[in-house]
Design a protein around this nucleic acid. Structure first.
Lengths: 233, 233
DNA sequence: CGACGGAGGTGTACGGCGTACACCTCCGCT
DNA sequence: AGCGGAGGTGTACGCCGTACACCTCCGTCG
């Protein structure tokens, strides 16, 4: 299997082929059935061969997440920020629904992948383009967290920021090249209270209550209006 | 170890002791370090001994979830439904924060445990006591899903309802004894559109968009008011 | 009092997992 | 012609969950 018709040699492995096959296998057999061994078998190769293309299983899962994120497709530049954000979040949901294992895997990653960071960045860009302040956008992103991906609390546990402020600034400048909006939000959101710049600087409890109250206030409003789903759905 | 001072025999295992030790071990060493073997060692016992008290590791995790849920404590009957719900959700958050592994474990369970069902039921009861319709409460619970536990989409994948309507009704009556509010919500929410009674009857896409729009509308309102966190937090 | 049955703890063993490490093969360079 | 390195192989190790047969000890009942 995976040989060319003329009896030539096996089509070679590549990181990309490994990741795509892993996604297909997880789609077909469930994420629990995805092991380095089963994936290797699927590719007609011995398990250890995979390690020439992915460092370990964790990195394999990271790569699979980015494959799914890649399927979300580009923003379609709707009318206002609200429609744009709404559309993009629904597109994300559809991508995750196509791969039932994906939501759980995204949540289980200990840190963000380049793909998820890019996705977050583009979402933040939409809010900012719509004129929302960096501050409000920051909280909005936290509040929507669960709708964008399904993660629980903190978007991601902040990596311990380097002790050396010079190093920290350099990391930040590097990140800003790829994720300008994320960096803006992270610095704006945190600078005001303790001067620390990235991660750690934002108050989880505040973010949690912000989102909670947004929902409770909305529910209260609907209740007072005598809202009923029959009139809408 | 785990022997009594007088040299008597080992204090006996019990389901409760197994679960509590598992929680303590996960707190101390992380959920990844919790294996049937490590837990057995912690208890001064051979791994297979655990299987006399829990059916398998899945059930061990279910039990641990219920231990954490049990720590949430009773509702404190605040002023209105909104404060009551708010307080209870914050209490839940604190319980989950005390056990960093808990949120992930709750999310990974394939179905609800008695403890989580009871918790959900009490939350629903608060909304109903506050006068919200079963309909609105149903959607509110979905919207708050991520804030209550951290789960993603559907609260839980509905178990395939029995084909026999008589069996279904019996199951429902049985459930209503323990979780009256859940049953009310489940039947009220679904009966209006296709007559099916439990699970499957509620439209995931609708619930998702309901919550999403609640948040986006709230964010828009804050934006128009020129809201800034400096004036609040 | 003695036999017994069952609850609870033990020992061994199996199949699966991720992956370290040494190896071999074969292609493209010089 | 020879070499080096990228990519695939084989073997092995230490974990995991748990099936199954066993043993031990206590409470019950004849």
């Amino acid at each position: 299997m995976t040989r060319q018709a003329d009896g030539g040699r096996r089509t070679p492995l590549s990181r990309d082929r490994v990741l795509r096959t892993a996604v297909a296998l997880a789609d077909r057999s469930g994420i629990d059935a995805l092991s380095m061994r089963s994936l290797a078998q699927e590719l007609g190769v011995v398990p250890m061969a995979l390690y020439k293309h992915v460092a370990n299983k964790e990195q394999l899962l990271d790569g699979m997440v980015d494959v799914v994120v890649g399927e979300i497709g580009p923003p379609d530049g709707g009318d206002g920020w609200k429609d744009a954000v709404r559309g993009r979040i629904l597109a994300t949901r559809h991508a995750l629904l196509r791969h039932p294992w994906a939501a759980r895997v995204v949540e289980s990653r200990p840190g963000p992948t380049p793909g998820t960071l890019g996705h977050l960045d583009s979402l933040i860009g939409m809010f900012r383009a719509g004129g929302l302040s960096a501050d409000l956008t920051h909280h909005a992103m936290h509040a929507l967290g669960g709708r964008v991906w399904g993660f629980t609390q903190e978007l991601f546990p902040a990596p311990p920021p380097s002790a050396d402020p010079e190093v920290r600034a350099a990391v930040l400048r590097e990140a800003a090249v790829h994720y300008p909006h994320i960096v803006e939000i992270a610095t704006a959101g945190a600078a005001h209270d303790d001067g620390s710049v990235v991660g750690g600087g934002c108050d989880d409890r505040f973010e949690f209550e912000f989102a909670l109250d947004l929902l409770l206030d909305g529910i209260e409003r609907l209740h007072r209006q005598g809202w009923s789903s029959a009139r809408h759905g």
